[in-house]
Design a binder for these strands. Structure first.
Lengths: 159, 159
DNA sequence: GAAATTTACTGGTATATGCCACTATATTTA
DNA sequence: TAAATATAGTGGCATATACCAGTAAATTTC
């Protein structure tokens, strides 16, 4: 046992990296619970969001996911390939494509829903149900356009 | 203006996806501030963590970053390619590799530090300094091994 | 209404990240 | 100590995610 270089010492003064670390760990925890379904947690989230909207345009879906439009397009690829979602052209605006679940996608979503509930329940149990709600609210705040505006407006140095 | 399918309606009942959305947005905000340096925020975080440790073994670094060892290896590639970090073999255990900043890496880190401070200051201004500290503490909790254990132990259904 | 501009999406490229299989070393067992 | 096992990394493959440069279709200008 030489000199332990071991930083448990994560550099935790950066709010961004703190969020990233937590996000990686939490993602993995949910992922493990969802594993039997074959869906990644991000994919399940995407399917849920698609299911909730009625054939949401990609643009709108990307906004709801707080995700770049092109990133969304790429992320949908495996789901399309596996026949879980499909794109339909908008009737009135030919630039727009709308996404929807296929029969198979709906089925898999239903089959996976219980696993998600299990994961969420575990999180609430470990973190506290009320704290969990507060956390989601806080995260929603940070993810909001208003917060981005406040951040960008908050010049700390002159310009 | 047809029927607005527009879900501002992000599905925000999942703690994981709430965290992911916030993480994406915040990442982008910091990223924009760091842009002039040419470093991504993740890379800056990594350089900082490497700088703080004294030639930390990859394994330990991965743990501090709450990141998979192989993922860390991949993420280091661009930094090695650009001559910012280098790996050195451990003297006593030939399996171990330690990471350190190069001269160039140290220089770039210093040059970028001010940008990070600016980003962090903007976050604190928009979110509140105290809230910011609390948030980091909360994120550290979620990222901790103890939390993972609690989550995994918290079986909600029988096994 | 033709030209300029904006909008929605696609494809290429690059980083971020995880899992698995494999290799090289250590460490532990028998 | 030879065999079994554990540990630290690497490389391949797959998804996640961003930016940029098109492309096509709408909208706005003049």
């Amino acid at each position: 046992m030489a000199e332990s270089n071991t930083p448990d010492g994560a550099w935790n003064y950066c709010s961004n990296s703190a969020l990233k670390r937590a996000s990686r760990q939490l993602g993995k925890l949910y992922e493990d619970v969802l594993a039997p379904s074959g869906l990644k947690i991000t994919q399940y989230t995407l399917l849920t969001q698609i299911k909730l909207g009625r054939e949401t345009p990609l643009k709108i879906l990307a906004e709801a996911m707080v995700m770049d439009l092109s990133a969304l397009g790429h992320t949908l690829k495996p789901l399309q390939r596996d026949g879980l979602v499909e794109l339909v052209a908008d009737e009135h605006d030919r630039r727009v494509k709308r996404v929807r679940l296929t029969e198979k996608g709906n089925q898999l979503w239903s089959d996976t829903n219980g696993l998600w509930r299990e994961a969420q329940a575990r999180f609430d149990a470990a973190f506290g149900k009320e704290a969990s709600e507060n956390l989601r609210r806080t995260m929603d705040l940070i993810a909001s356009p208003g917060f981005a505006a406040a951040f960008s407006g908050a010049r700390q140095n002159q310009d």
